[in-house]
Design a protein around this nucleic acid. Sequence first.
DNA 1: GTCTATATTTCGATAGAC
DNA 2: GTCTATCGAAATATAGAC
Lengths: 188, 188
Amino acid sequence: MSTRERLIESTRTLLWERGYVATSPKTIQQLADAGQGSMYHHFSGKEELARVAIDRTAEEMRASVGALLSGPGTPLERISTYLRREREVMKGCPIGRLTQDPDVMATPMLVAPVAETLNWLRERLAALVAEGVADGELNPALDPVTTAAAIVATLQGGYVLARAANDPQAFQQAIEGVLALLGAPSVR
Amino acid sequence: MSTRERLIESTRTLLWERGYVATSPKTIQQLADAGQGSMYHHFSGKEELARVAIDRTAEEMRASVGALLSGPGTPLERISTYLRREREVMKGCPIGRLTQDPDVMATPMLVAPVAETLNWLRERLAALVAEGVADGELNPALDPVTTAAAIVATLQGGYVLARAANDPQAFQQAIEGVLALLGAPSVR
DNA sequence: GTCTATATTTCGATAGAC
DNA sequence: GTCTATCGAAATATAGAC
């Protein structure tokens, strides 16, 4: 892997684990096994590097989530599959976490990909909920937009609960909680 | 207000707005209009001051939320009242936000009050859900523990969505989404 | 492209006078 | 209790040699 690649991947790792404010250029360089000069040769600074890293994480997420949500099964089955898929629960959402970083929120170049990804996810789920309602699989009284917001919020908030409780199970409980409310069959 | 009080209140404000890693002693002192010496006279350092600030925020939250959840109305009405109460949505949850701070999570003294508060909230809501189920107000198929986790997660995740979208409405949508799933009457 | 040297600020705290 | 001085380390770059 090229030095440039290692810098990007190291940044992705650190943004996920520690966020933007708490990640220093020095730490990135050490993890990437790259010198000071290399980093500033390839990128104008911490901000640009973070933007490239966030963009890549956002793209990967859209690709993998998009595939699951467009996969086989009924709308509710696809939503369940997505919500129950394996995750590094204790690490949290690599995109959602950035909304709690003051320096990310203060930097338009960094918020943009975060906003786009989360909004995309809500829209994608709203479309699926609408489909489920049209098919008669979901309660016809459900509003697709608010229901989708609740689903995404449960995911994001599930990470918060898991970290607070220091137990991934808290995340799973939140997920099973919404799924039950949606009328999905229990897994046990 | 005493200097000590101003230091605590300033820290509470900054922890809420920027988190722990991104808050420096210097900033706290400036906001509190206190000198270096004052801060280190009243507290051993940033960590102890943060602990006192977090404890106070946690206590206030338990008091106000506890009052709402023990207030008048049926279980579902009380849950709705709590979820729909006025909030500084764009600032997020002063307690939940701390779970995304790497230095808070690495410091047992600081995680403890966060963990206790969020766990308390889940238990409190689980008891209310159980009550609603027993009364026949809520779907008897609902599991109190997972349902409560989903409710708290929706709250916490709603803040994430609102910040990402730069729009408090995203939070409201998530809230109305779960409430509809719970069978609460729509507000409009 | 990568390295070393240097620079400016800030961080988080200590020391000691008043 | 509060103030000023000082400290060693880290943050975030820039400069210029190789």
